[in-house]
Amino acid sequence: MAMDAREIEGLIKAALPDARIVIRDLAGDGDHYAAEVVSESFRGKNRVQQHQMVYAALKGNMGGALHALALQTSAPE
């Protein structure tokens, strides 16, 4: 079962309430997305740690209901 972009955004927002999130469906199949996530919570963390925070927010859906998510993460400028 594929995930809806709104569901992905909701999960990320629940974990990172201040996040600005832009999600694009890359293949139109609900399985392949790109997400840009900007959050103050990322400040001082390296890229791997930032991505781990987003994957944790997805509550185990990565690799299951959500097949692929290309991430760009950063702290606000």
Results as ranks from 00 to 15, higher is better:
residue 1 M to Y: 12
residue 3 M to G: 00
residue 3 M to L: 15
residue 4 D to R: 14
residue 4 D to S: 14
residue 5 A to H: 04
residue 6 R to W: 12
residue 7 E to S: 13
residue 8 I to L: 09
residue 9 E to I: 07
residue 9 E to F: 11
residue 9 E to P: 08
residue 10 G to S: 15
residue 10 G to Q: 10
residue 11 L to K: 05
residue 11 L to Q: 03
residue 12 I to G: 00
residue 13 K to T: 15
residue 13 K to M: 12
residue 14 A to W: 03
residue 15 A to C: 05
residue 16 L to Y: 00
residue 17 P to S: 06
residue 19 A to K: 01
residue 19 A to S: 01
residue 20 R to N: 07
residue 20 R to A: 12
residue 21 I to A: 01
residue 21 I to G: 08
residue 22 V to P: 04
residue 22 V to G: 08
residue 23 I to W: 00
residue 23 I to E: 03
residue 24 R to T: 15
residue 24 R to C: 12
residue 25 D to R: 05
residue 26 L to G: 11
residue 27 A to Q: 14
residue 27 A to L: 12
residue 27 A to M: 11
residue 28 G to D: 02
residue 29 D to A: 08
residue 29 D to Q: 10
residue 30 G to E: 07
residue 30 G to A: 14
residue 30 G to N: 09
residue 32 H to D: 10
residue 34 A to D: 11
residue 34 A to R: 13
residue 34 A to G: 14
residue 34 A to W: 11
residue 35 A to E: 02
residue 37 V to R: 05
residue 38 V to A: 05
residue 38 V to S: 04
residue 39 S to F: 01
residue 39 S to D: 02
residue 40 E to W: 08
residue 40 E to S: 12
residue 41 S to N: 01
residue 42 F to S: 01
residue 45 K to Y: 07
residue 46 N to C: 09
residue 46 N to M: 09
residue 46 N to L: 07
residue 47 R to Q: 14
residue 48 V to Y: 08
residue 49 Q to L: 10
residue 50 Q to W: 02
residue 51 H to F: 07
residue 53 M to H: 02
residue 55 Y to W: 04
residue 55 Y to Q: 06
residue 56 A to L: 04
residue 56 A to C: 00
residue 57 A to W: 02
residue 57 A to Y: 08
residue 59 K to R: 12
residue 59 K to H: 09
residue 60 G to F: 09
residue 61 N to G: 00
residue 61 N to W: 06
residue 62 M to D: 03
residue 64 G to T: 11
residue 64 G to H: 15
residue 65 A to C: 13
residue 65 A to Q: 14
residue 66 L to R: 02
residue 67 H to C: 06
residue 67 H to N: 05
residue 68 A to M: 07
residue 68 A to V: 08
residue 68 A to S: 15
residue 69 L to G: 03
residue 69 L to M: 13
residue 70 A to T: 13
residue 70 A to G: 07
residue 70 A to K: 07
residue 72 Q to C: 06
residue 72 Q to V: 10
residue 74 S to Q: 13
residue 74 S to C: 10
residue 75 A to L: 07
residue 75 A to T: 05
residue 76 P to M: 03
residue 76 P to Q: 01
